[in-house]
Design a protein around this nucleic acid. Sequence first.
DNA 1: CTTTACAAGTGTCTTTTTTACACTTATTTG
DNA 2: CAAATAAGTGTAAAAAAGACACTTGTAAAG
Lengths: 229, 229
Amino acid sequence: MPFTYQYPRAALTVDCVLFGFDGGALKVLLIRRGIEPFQNHWALPGGFVRPDETLDAAALRELQEETGLREVYLEQLYTFGEIDRDPRERVISVAYFALVRRADHIPDAATDAAEAPWFEAEKIPALAFDHAEILQTALERLRGKIRWQPVGFELLPKKFTLSQFQALYEAILGRELDKRNFRKKLLALDLLVALDESTNAASRRPAQLFRFDQRKYQALTRKGFIFDL
Amino acid sequence: MPFTYQYPRAALTVDCVLFGFDGGALKVLLIRRGIEPFQNHWALPGGFVRPDETLDAAALRELQEETGLREVYLEQLYTFGEIDRDPRERVISVAYFALVRRADHIPDAATDAAEAPWFEAEKIPALAFDHAEILQTALERLRGKIRWQPVGFELLPKKFTLSQFQALYEAILGRELDKRNFRKKLLALDLLVALDESTNAASRRPAQLFRFDQRKYQALTRKGFIFDL
DNA sequence: CTTTACAAGTGTCTTTTTTACACTTATTTG
DNA sequence: CAAATAAGTGTAAAAAAGACACTTGTAAAG
């Protein structure tokens, strides 16, 4: 035990709130804890930050280790530092907010889906530590954020229909939106590119596919443009 | 040295970006560092988190110790965890964002103003560590925040004129606003109370004083109201 | 081949919000 | 009492938001 200090030091962890969307409801990925404390309880994926990695890198690594996911949108959420949030000792947790395109993701055989299942954001079981509070903070961030930043696209397939996009907004905001007004406003932003493809219909009219023009958005952002839906 | 761990542990600090407004420009309080590293450099007030205090409490304590200020608006900003941000060893800093009513504050004799002066937010000297980046983050937060939350009032005297309020917004947003439109929109929120007092004029027409109706705002907030200026 | 079921797609009018814009008023000082 | 200074005030035009219902294209069923 070679590392000694004059004063006690808190341990440092990252925890990730990973959101996904399956076409109908907003989902959150939880893992079942294998060890004490809170063994067998549901919890957010996360773990200790290593001495030689940044916080962002730790969050990314934990997500990969525990869920097999890469290519996620990741941003720092908030740091939770209540004194007794971990029964063992003082642990500071830097929480992260993550979004993933579930449709594009092929589940990793190495990751047991039973140990890392998706829960509806509205139907979350009891969670370990203060993870319920962290999740609540993340939900509020997501609801606020989709209105001012184009993060919704991180939850949809790269090619999507306007109806899918509207369903996503309705699921996150928790209220219905007018189809015509929503489309009008969205298309007026001029940030979607209509593709040459349509969905191959299942007993109904095929829908036009679009992609989000990330390059154009970034160019506009540099000129002070603010996305607003 | 009684505290030993199996792995090295990062030290944990808080740093505060404290904003004030003097009627003309947005200001930031800096301190001159008394010890190495960066001795004599300008830096944000801050220091180590004690084992038995929360992050919020640490930020509040540091502000009081280094600036003599109480009654500040305080919220967590972001956590900075780059590996080499402190040359001594790994230090994680939880940055805070603070607002104070400079006009209401009588400088504390115990705090030497020469060691904790206010700098214009647009004219900041070179700073220790990654404090320039922290300050930049805080400025962006403030600019975004005043539009959706009534935090501007935390920078003005409890009794203020509409012109003072407009000058504050112009200083923070960095652009001029139309007087009539600004007043119309602000008063339409119906969150200001006109007082029975006016400013005692200095060779000009006296101005009506107002206060912000915090109770009313909180009641509206619970019903889903969102402040928007 | 025709009908049915189903989601996709589309336009106008009304209301609300935002923006542009200039003179009068109250007070102190010289 | 004139000058200087910031406070205070309204209207009209433009833009954005909101309400609202029918037609279209496809696959499946009959």
